[in-house]
Deep mutational scan, measured.
Amino acid sequence: DKPLMPYMRYSRKVWDQVKASNPDLKLWEIGKIIGGMWRDLTDEEKQEYLNEYEAEKIEYNESMKAY
């Protein structure tokens, strides 16, 4: 599988927590909350997800070359 983009990594990490805090919200409403949370992160906080993505992207590209 292709590596997940940084925002999607963050979304997967916080989804269950946001859903548990807001059990009556629809999926798109939860997505909207998470989008706002992502925008509110500092560049340093986002960098963690970007670093994970870049590392996985290198691994993915290497595995595709071998294939």
Rank of each mutant, 00 (worst) to 15 (best):
D1I: 11
D1L: 04
D1N: 13
D1E: 08
K2C: 04
K2T: 09
K2Q: 04
P3G: 07
L4K: 11
M5L: 13
Y7C: 05
Y7T: 06
Y7F: 10
Y7I: 07
Y7Q: 10
M8I: 09
M8N: 10
M8Q: 15
M8Y: 09
R9L: 03
R9G: 02
Y10I: 02
Y10H: 00
Y10Q: 02
S11L: 12
S11M: 08
R12G: 06
R12W: 03
R12E: 13
K13E: 14
V14K: 01
V14G: 00
V14M: 07
V14L: 03
W15I: 11
W15C: 04
W15Y: 04
D16K: 09
D16P: 07
D16R: 04
D16C: 03
Q17E: 14
Q17M: 09
Q17D: 14
Q17C: 06
Q17W: 10
V18L: 02
V18C: 01
K19L: 07
K19T: 09
K19R: 12
A20V: 05
A20I: 05
A20Y: 05
S21D: 15
S21I: 04
S21Q: 14
S21F: 03
N22E: 01
N22Y: 09
N22M: 11
N22C: 05
N22L: 14
P23C: 01
D24M: 15
D24P: 03
L25C: 10
L25D: 00
L25K: 13
K26F: 00
K26C: 07
L27F: 08
L27H: 15
L27P: 15
L27C: 11
L27T: 15
L27M: 13
W28G: 14
W28H: 02
E29R: 01
E29V: 00
I30L: 07
I30K: 02
G31A: 14
G31L: 07
G31R: 15
G31T: 14
K32C: 05
K32A: 11
K32R: 11
K32S: 09
K32V: 06
I33D: 02
I33E: 04
I34S: 02
I34N: 00
I34C: 03
I34Y: 00
G35N: 13
G35E: 15
G35V: 08
G35K: 15
G35S: 14
G36Y: 08
G36L: 06
G36A: 12
M37A: 02
M37P: 00
W38Y: 02
W38K: 04
W38N: 03
W38A: 02
R39A: 15
R39K: 11
R39Q: 14
R39C: 07
D40S: 10
D40R: 12
D40Q: 12
D40E: 11
L41R: 03
T42S: 14
T42E: 08
T42G: 12
T42I: 03
D43C: 10
D43Q: 10
D43M: 13
E45Q: 08
E45Y: 03
E45T: 03
E45C: 05
E45F: 00
E45W: 00
K46W: 01
K46M: 03
Q47A: 08
Q47G: 07
Q47P: 01
Q47F: 06
Q47S: 11
E48N: 10
E48C: 08
E48S: 11
E48R: 08
Y49Q: 05
Y49W: 05
Y49E: 03
L50M: 14
L50F: 12
L50P: 02
L50G: 10
L50T: 15
L50N: 06
L50K: 13
N51Q: 12
N51C: 11
N51D: 11
Y53E: 13
Y53W: 08
Y53D: 13
E54P: 06
A55V: 10
A55M: 09
E56P: 06
E56D: 09
E56S: 05
K57A: 11
K57G: 07
K57L: 12
I58Y: 04
I58T: 12
I58V: 06
I58W: 06
I58M: 12
E59P: 05
E59C: 08
E59K: 13
E59W: 03
E59Q: 14
Y60Q: 10
Y60G: 12
Y60W: 08
N61R: 12
N61W: 06
E62G: 07
E62R: 12
E62C: 07
E62I: 05
S63F: 06
S63M: 09
M64D: 15
K65S: 13
K65R: 11
K65Y: 08
A66S: 14
A66W: 06
A66M: 12
A66P: 10
Y67I: 15
Y67N: 14
Y67G: 13
Y67S: 15
